[in-house]
Design a protein around this nucleic acid. Sequence first.
DNA 1: TAAAAATACTCCATAGGTATTTTAT
DNA 2: ATAAAATACCTATGGAGTATTTTTA
Lengths: 310, 310
Amino acid sequence: MIDLRQLRQFVAVAEELHFGRAARRLHMTQPPLTQAVHGLEAALEVRLFERSKRSVALTPGGEALLVRARRLLRAADDLPRAVKAAAEGLTGHLRLAFVSTVAYGPLPNLLGGFRESNPDVSLQLREATLDVQLAAFGADEVDAGFVVHAPGAAPLGFETLTVLAEPMVLALPIDHAAAATGHTLRFEDIASDPLVIFPRNIAPSLFDSVLSFYRVNGITPHFGQEAIQMQTIVSLVSAGMGVAWVPEALTRLQRPGVVYRHVQGVPLISETSLIWNKQALPVVERFISHVRDAANCSALVRQPPASVES
Amino acid sequence: MIDLRQLRQFVAVAEELHFGRAARRLHMTQPPLTQAVHGLEAALEVRLFERSKRSVALTPGGEALLVRARRLLRAADDLPRAVKAAAEGLTGHLRLAFVSTVAYGPLPNLLGGFRESNPDVSLQLREATLDVQLAAFGADEVDAGFVVHAPGAAPLGFETLTVLAEPMVLALPIDHAAAATGHTLRFEDIASDPLVIFPRNIAPSLFDSVLSFYRVNGITPHFGQEAIQMQTIVSLVSAGMGVAWVPEALTRLQRPGVVYRHVQGVPLISETSLIWNKQALPVVERFISHVRDAANCSALVRQPPASVES
DNA sequence: TAAAAATACTCCATAGGTATTTTAT
DNA sequence: ATAAAATACCTATGGAGTATTTTTA
């Protein structure tokens, strides 16, 4: 059976075209090298060198073996580093899901940073709402997913990491009385406006916390339109269908006819979290670590919001 | 240093997920197999299996190694047959040159036959006149070349094989008196017509044999147009510029206004030969053999000419 | 307690070393 | 005469075997 040692020896001889020099290069003596090459020729049943006592030349078969042997040896020599890289998550494939809101928030920076320090990991991104993500987890179609406002949503055997907790701001039509700048906006100013919001099943926790905040303040909110995409919600606000509570990061989505305002004394918080299967591959672990680091060094995650006057 | 034996052992264990069974498959016992895998893990500095006394599972690093090891082993196992094939000329690259005339003659069948029995040889074809071919040989840009009417043209260190010797026929304008069928055409009928012919430097032997045949018959031929492509020569004939001697195979090139006729008592012969460097690669040798075989079994080479009335 | 991996040791096949011969220049 | 490959023979490393222990389901 052919082995790499023989190929290394063959390549050395083929490159030096001199058994003595090749042997020196291989840190061995000439006789066993001669024998090893003879052995290889016997194993392949092909003459590899044209020897004429005074000179050594490759036969066509030798030429053919040389290119193949070099390829093989290169692959074999790369193997340790390749396996180690894979084991450490430096290479591999990462399938990420995210709810669309996150694309306006921490996602771009997180991905950018990860790509930069892990250029050999291929990324596959997929926009999906929480319920779709959970189904995808079940079918092992994604490795990790970013969700918003989903405490405790992770099924058994999954882990959660809060990436970002940001205040929620109010999106309201520009012609709304409360939209004018120059004064501090208070809850009473907008409490009676109809709410544009996700359907409850998409983000129960968001829905419930908004509802309970209104109730605590003695108000039964009037729910206007529902939509399952933040962009749609903002469009509905711009169309005058009501006001909407959105994560601060969404202020980066500027639409004509819509302004965002902090509202004094409103403790609504939007939590972005990452969910992943507990027994994750190294690539996934590596991504989690990156996200965890970035979340701690929060400057990386929470950029200054664009023009939100309060 | 990592070697193929270890990889084979690793793959067996990874596939069986059971050291005992894997050892049996490898025709060895379990203890040395365990040690070998430990050795591999030590060499790679990566844990490859998650052992729990009762069950064996691949780690992510193991998964990564498995795909790479399989690729490597497949390549290594293919190596003997690949090298042998290359040494026997069953694979490789063949660069052929040919003068355009041959494309109307034996070339298509020769190539077709060769491709059929040597599907793994890649062919590169190049149309070139004799002088260009000789330059290409000098620059080692072609392996073999088909030429016409070039006895002794091969430089030192090259070999020649006559592929085909065919009679030459006369191409003449359809409105020529001698073009009419129904009688045997004799040399006197066309001896005084101007000749359309290659310039002498392109095919000295052709030029000289035509010239000497005319001289022997007491005629100094009148040379009309010259052209370095047979197709051009036939076009010039159709344009009434004269008559031309062409290899019988060229009758396959039918042009309006041109007819081909055998001329009685004209011993002009067109010889197609193959030229190649004496110290040829196996692929080339193989091609030569194929051509030699085909030339002997001449039915393969000399097809019945298309409609040449005599 | 049974099944499977790990450990301890033994052995020999072979990779590699030394000494020498052959051969072409 | 010399340089380089081939041959002969020797040595010792390590790959594989047998026997045994450990571990956990």
